[in-house]
């Protein structure tokens, strides 16, 4: 073993390579929490008032809208899909909710209608993609376009309706939930996340989601029905998106069809930053909760730096890529041979 040491792999490469075990540990959660805390500390140091209770509460409210929509997106990403109809459904939930409430309809009925519409559109997405084996990207783009257009026609592209008063309170950063000092919408978001976690861990369809995402062909042979699971995942995504839209009405006051537009990429970014793989089969819902928090913190931080919205966007884009680089990296082609 004397002259053999001539073949030393480049040190630099070794430093950059994270061992599979470390990467596994990283993608399993702690780093997402560390990221959330780290950005919070940076914000506290850099932006006056960042860590004030009011500002934290406000961030949580904003995060809950994103978080609920991203929760739905998570299900779709777990089966290896992507849902681009989220913004249209947020817009639809928002407009329908505000219009019907403005016409004096009972809020329970309104919520039911909103949820059913989201669920149906989502289920159509799921069925179309699974029955004809079409790329979800294109299908959801198309249905999103149809739904968005229909809402436009219905409202004639104007601001309409009004949010019920309880909803305004429900989503106000200043309000609290019983003894808890955060707005009810935040509690709702976290409760939904817990339910979703139980669903994916402790139910048969929940486990089947992972199998379908990891290997479609093998899943079929293991009696996983691609149609059912796709319909469920896309349906949940649709329902949660339209719910987020409805809740946003409390924030915006009236129904506006464009309210969902920023959520197209934000909902995907929250899922990815949380560490759920776009290739399917790997990830989880709590990660998306953390991903949503990270994104909202970042945006607040950038606003606090008094950057223009344009510059914010540019920085955000770069940060998303860098954060994902920490734990969202694919396997090297060498390791896959």
């Amino acid at each position: 073993m004397s002259a053999i040491t001539t073949v030393v792999p480049p040190r630099v490469r070794k430093l950059l390579e994270i061992s599979p075990r470390t990467r596994g540990a990283l993608t399993n959660g702690p780093i997402q929490i560390v990221t959330v805390v780290a950005i919070f500390l940076v914000g506290k140091a850099a932006v006056p008032g960042f860590a004030q209770p009011y500002s934290v509460k406000a961030m949580l409210v904003i995060a809950s809208f994103l978080g609920i929509a991203a929760l739905g997106q998570t299900f779709v990403v777990l089966i290896g899909g992507i849902d681009l109809s989220v913004p249209a459904l947020i817009g639809a939930g928002n407009v329908i909710g505000a219009r019907l409430s403005g016409e004096g309809m009972n809020s329970v009925e309104v919520i039911a209608i909103v949820l059913v519409i989201g669920l149906l559109v989502g289920a159509v997405n799921g069925l179309v993609t699974s029955v004809w084996h079409l790329p979800p990207l294109v299908v959801t783009l198309a249905t999103g376009s149809v739904v968005g257009g229909a809402v436009l026609i219905w409202t004639n592209a104007t601001l309409s309706g009004s949010a019920p008063s309880w909803l305004t309170k429900f989503t106000s950063a200043a309000s609290s939930t019983g003894p808890l000092p955060v707005a009810p919408v935040v509690i709702l978001w976290l409760a939904l996340a817990v339910v979703a976690q139980v669903f994916i861990r402790r139910s048969r369809p929940g486990r089947q989601i992972f199998m379908l995402g990891a290997n479609r062909q093998a899943a079929e042979l293991m009696l996983v029905s691609e149609r059912t699971i796709s319909a469920v995942c896309f349906g949940l995504s649709g329902a949660l998106a339209s719910l987020a839209g409805f809740l946003l009405a409390g924030f915006t006051g009236a129904g506006l069809f464009t309210v969902g537009d920023p959520y197209l990429f934000l909902s995907i970014a929250a899922v990815v930053i949380g560490g759920t793989s776009l290739l399917g089969g790997r990830g989880g819902v709590f990660r998306t909760v953390l991903g949503s928090l990270t994104l909202v913190e970042l945006t607040t931080l950038l606003v606090g730096q008094s950057l223009s919205s344009a510059a914010q966007q540019a920085v955000l884009g770069a940060v998303i890529v860098c954060v994902t680089a920490l734990y969202g990296r694919d396997r090297n082609v060498r390791d896959r041979v």
Binding site: I82, F265, I268, A269, V272, S277, L278, L279, S308, S309, A310, A311, Q312, Q313, A314, V315, L316, G317, A318, I320, V321, T324, A325, G328, R329, D330, R331, N332
Partner: peptide
């Protein structure tokens, strides 16, 4: 480079540059 050498998912990388470029254009 970010996709091939950084081994990041294309959607993430190009979404990042989407945001960067549209921000820069406005700047």
């Amino acid at each position: 480079i970010a996709i091939a050498y950084g081994r990041l998912q294309p959607v993430v990388v190009t979404l990042g540059s989407y945001l960067v470029l549209s921000g820069l254009a406005l700047v």
